[in-house]
Simulated scan of single mutants.
Amino acid sequence: MRIEISLAGQYLDLFAADGARIRRYAVSTAANGAGEQVDSGRTPRGRHYVRARIGAGAPLGAVFRGRRATGELCTPAFAAAHPGRDWILTRILWLCGCEPGRNRLGKVDSMRRYIYIHGTPDDQPMGEARSHGCIRMRNAEVAELFELVPAGTIVEIRE
């Protein structure tokens, strides 16, 4: 399997080993656009792979901080009580760059930048660039994707 993410189209495609597209999900990537530099708030381009899968078995809406479940669930009331928070919910697919100097090592290292595919509150729009660099998905959809892809899955992020 492999994943392709379109920054221009704001979608994620999942392809089977034979090249057939088996899923398409609307996503939300960085409001600041594409870019690889640390602290840029941009979504890195290029070839990556899923380095770690975090959150197996967690309920939809489970809140993560520092890649650990807090035991909280993000409900509309909970989200309203914490305005401005950059929510990481349900599941995390932590990405590692494959291209030294582009998205791996030094000041362009996607993994050290904590670039994830993760869930976000379901009232947040998809198909619009609004994240801080990660790839946001609907909670049910990121849980489905999580079950379909193993660690090591290739992720290509394209403009």
Rank of each mutant, 00 (worst) to 15 (best):
R23S: 11
P121F: 00
D13M: 11
K107H: 10
L12G: 01
S6V: 05
A30E: 10
E144F: 09
Y49I: 11
I115K: 03
I54K: 07
L105G: 15
N32D: 00
V155F: 10
D122L: 14
M126W: 11
A26L: 13
A81F: 12
L12M: 03
G127K: 07
Y114A: 02
P125L: 02
S131F: 00
H132P: 06
I3M: 09
A8S: 15
Q37S: 15
D123R: 13
R91P: 00
I22Y: 09
R67S: 12
Q37T: 10
P121C: 01
T153P: 10
S110Y: 02
D122A: 14
R85A: 11
A151I: 09
P83G: 07
R47T: 15
V142F: 12
D18N: 05
R136I: 10
A34T: 06
A129W: 12
A34R: 13
L12Q: 04
L12E: 00
D13S: 15
D109I: 08
G106D: 05
Q37K: 06
E141R: 13
N103Y: 12
G101T: 05
T153K: 08
E72Q: 08
E147Y: 03
R104H: 12
H132F: 09
V63N: 08
G19I: 04
F146L: 05
I88P: 05
L14G: 11
N139I: 01
Q10C: 03
S40Y: 07
N32H: 10
M137S: 13
R53G: 07
G101Q: 10
P59Q: 08
Y114Q: 00
Q10Y: 07
T75P: 02
D109A: 13
E141T: 14
R21F: 10
N103W: 02
S131I: 11
G41S: 09
Y116F: 09
R130Y: 03
N103L: 06
F15P: 07
P83K: 02
W87L: 03
P100R: 08
D109Q: 10
E4N: 15
H48Y: 00
D39W: 10
W87C: 00
E156K: 13
I3H: 13
R67Y: 11
I3A: 01
I92G: 04
R104N: 06
Y114F: 03
T70N: 08
E147A: 14
R23W: 08
L7T: 09
P121K: 04
A77L: 02
R45H: 01
I117F: 02
V142M: 13
P76W: 06
V27D: 00
A31K: 14
A62P: 01
G119W: 03
E147S: 11
L145V: 05
A31W: 12
W94V: 14
A26F: 08
A34V: 06
S110K: 02
F78N: 00
N32C: 09
L148T: 02
A129E: 05
S110H: 06
Q37C: 02
I154H: 13
I5Q: 07
F78D: 03
D109H: 15
G55A: 13
T70R: 15
G46M: 12
F146A: 05
D13C: 12
I157W: 05
